[in-house]
Design a protein around this nucleic acid. Structure first.
Lengths: 103, 103
DNA sequence: CCTTACAGTAAGTCATGACTTACGCTGAGA
DNA sequence: TCTCAGCGTAAGTCATGACTTACTGTAAGG
């Protein structure tokens, strides 16, 4: 059920941009904010959401904090999506069959 | 880039419930509304969002309209997620290497 | 036809959450 | 130890969007 958190976390465009900015390498808040059209506190708030959704991790580096992507945060959502490739097919097939028997 | 629409469409809990209610079989708006704690017009509005995100299809059946899941609407999001299983790993590895060279 | 079931649309309300500025805290370097 | 860079937090604003009720349109059945 935790894929719900992943959906809401990545539904916001700014948050997705931040998340994707971390694909290349871990970055500090300042670095991330420099690449976004929003203020640094806004980036901090987004990072908090991403972190509680288990999508990023933090590591203090002096006065800076390095954020990095946590791939595991995507696992549940991935599994959720994959599940549609099993049951929908069969449900669709049985619906087709039902219509042919009941036009 | 259309996975953005998928994210916003499925980020709403009610909309997800409606979407998942269609996993078993196609249903009418009334059927869907009966299984939800919101009004029928609300369900209609959610269905419009799902439809424009290519996540459901409609087929008129007399005065009723049968909604069904469209698996293809999930493709882009699925591909998007899969992409993280390639580049993040290498980026994480190179970051580890970087730290070992620059502790 | 006339009625009734089924749904989409309009319009208005209300909460959520994405932003801002201002402030406080903590490490590192002079 | 003083200062400054780097961030998180608080508080307040504002837009978005998820609801509601009321209305309109359409297909089927008497």
């Amino acid at each position: 059920m935790t894929y719900a958190e992943t959906f809401t976390a990545l539904a916001d465009p700014t948050r997705r941009h931040i998340f994707e900015a971390l694909r290349a390498r871990p970055k500090s808040v300042g670095e991330l904010a420099a690449g976004q059209p929003v203020s640094r506190p806004a980036v901090s708030q987004h990072l908090r959401v991403l972190e509680s959704a288990n999508l990023v991790s933090v590591e203090p580096r002096g006065t800076r904090r390095l954020y990095a992507i946590r791939r595991e945060g995507l696992e549940d959502l991935r599994t959720y999506l994959e599940s549609f490739w099993s049951d929908v097919l069969s449900a669709y097939g049985s619906e087709i069959a039902r219509r042919q028997n009941d036009p």
